[in-house]
Amino acid sequence: MSETKIAAVGDRASVILFHTAGVTTRDVISLEEAESAVRELVVAGYNVIFITEAFIKDMTDLTEKYRREAYPALIPIPDRSGSMGLAEKKVIDNMEKAIGTNIFDK
């Protein structure tokens, strides 16, 4: 058991609240900035990185790279304008991939 290092990456308005909860935050404005922030955080040993949906949806390279490893966990969070339904869709996608069908609707 070791200490988890937690970070949040996203636009300033969305991640400012994470700062109050004691999470390291990186406010970014573009996808490139977000990607390099995530890379830096991973190198710095952060295990859990929350990323706003607006950025994580285009970070397929990074998410695929770490998909098979237990850490770091790159987790989408809604941004200020609310959830885009991306994370919920991911749950359904995982379900369909594993079981072959979405049994939540049945």
Binding site: S2, E3, T4, I16, H19, T20, A21, G22
Partner: peptide
């Protein structure tokens, strides 16, 4: 920004596999 400058809690957790 000023109000939220100081964290109100520290997010501490332990990780394992």
């Amino acid at each position: 920004n000023e109000a939220l400058l100081v964290p109100s809690a520290s997010a501490k957790a332990e990780y394992d596999t």
